[in-house]
Amino acid sequence: MQFNPDAFNRFLGGSGNIGQQYQWYSSDACPCADRHSGMGKPGCPLCFGRGRQFAAPVTGVAALSGQSSQREWAQFGVYEQGDVVMTIPENTPIYEIGQYDRMTALNATNHFSQVLVSGSGAERLYFATQAITRVFWLTLDGTAVVEGGIPVVAADGSLSWPAGGQPPPGAQYTISGTKFMDYFCFGNFPSNRNMQQGLRLPRKVVLRDFDLFNR
């Protein structure tokens, strides 16, 4: 039997087939990371305590694998709720993905709502935001809700309010909206099918919710 990489690419591609659009962020260990645990230094201005530095995103195509592949991964005993198994064609930049790299699904979104502290120096969203829909906080006596303005989210996740409506310094506030599904590459799926006899066949990798990164 002769494998055909072009046939795999057409099937897994994004032109009306099963492929979807993703942004891939390759990563490198941050010099601040602990040599034994890999944990980043809290407050590091480069990795923000993640222990990895992520490059600028590159857009590519990949496809979610069948449910049977996910059951197979679960049998290894290291499965976490929300893990997905992904198959990557060889004609996309994402083919070079490595462990701990980040992947953002551009075709899937989810609601988020979290609490931050204004002026804390740690006001940052650590995921790819689609839209901010609401910002609010309580009055000093805790009896009423104050609606704030919608912030601008910078590329590094930091927040600013150029149109006004920023929470007062020290206020604990809620920020809600929608975010793109965000993952990191937990590792290569146990298989050596790619590079078979010199052919660049599809790769299979396991992605884990980015909220669990370095935990």
Score class of each variant (00 low, 15 high):
138 L>G: 00
175 I>Y: 01
88 I>F: 12
11 F>G: 07
130 Q>R: 13
97 I>H: 06
176 S>H: 00
64 L>C: 02
152 V>C: 10
37 S>M: 01
168 P>N: 07
210 F>P: 04
74 A>H: 00
32 C>D: 09
62 A>C: 10
115 V>S: 04
169 P>I: 05
54 F>C: 06
119 G>H: 12
95 Y>N: 10
17 N>L: 01
62 A>I: 03
114 Q>D: 09
45 P>E: 08
80 E>C: 14
42 P>F: 15
22 Y>E: 01
52 R>M: 15
186 F>P: 03
144 A>F: 00
163 A>I: 07
182 D>R: 07
10 R>V: 05
207 L>M: 06
104 T>N: 12
77 G>D: 08
166 Q>P: 07
80 E>A: 14
167 P>N: 12
37 S>H: 09
161 W>S: 05
47 C>F: 15
86 M>C: 08
160 S>R: 08
18 I>K: 09
93 P>I: 13
186 F>Y: 14
155 A>G: 00
183 Y>I: 13
162 P>H: 06
35 R>K: 05
3 F>M: 13
22 Y>M: 04
67 Q>K: 09
169 P>R: 04
48 F>I: 03
106 L>R: 10
192 N>Q: 14
160 S>L: 09
160 S>A: 11
29 A>T: 06
77 G>K: 01
110 N>F: 06
133 T>H: 04
92 T>M: 02
85 V>E: 01
144 A>D: 06
205 V>N: 10
205 V>Y: 13
64 L>N: 03
61 V>T: 15
121 G>C: 11
160 S>M: 08
118 S>G: 08
61 V>A: 01
33 A>V: 02
195 M>N: 07
15 S>W: 07
59 T>S: 14
69 S>F: 06
183 Y>S: 02
91 N>G: 00
138 L>Q: 12
9 N>K: 01
89 P>V: 11
186 F>L: 15
42 P>M: 15
200 R>A: 15
141 D>N: 03
101 D>K: 13
100 Y>M: 11
200 R>V: 09
139 T>N: 11
71 R>D: 13
125 L>M: 06
83 D>Y: 03
54 F>G: 00
97 I>T: 15
11 F>P: 03
26 S>A: 15
56 A>K: 15
161 W>T: 09
5 P>G: 10
209 D>L: 12
180 F>Q: 07
193 R>T: 14
97 I>A: 12
88 I>E: 06
96 E>D: 11
162 P>I: 09
66 G>I: 04
43 G>K: 15
208 R>I: 05
181 M>P: 02
102 R>G: 02
133 T>K: 04
129 T>K: 07
157 G>Y: 02
70 Q>V: 01
180 F>I: 11
190 P>N: 10
94 I>M: 10
162 P>D: 04
154 A>W: 04
159 L>R: 11
93 P>W: 02
187 G>Q: 05
9 N>L: 14
132 I>G: 06
180 F>H: 03
159 L>N: 00
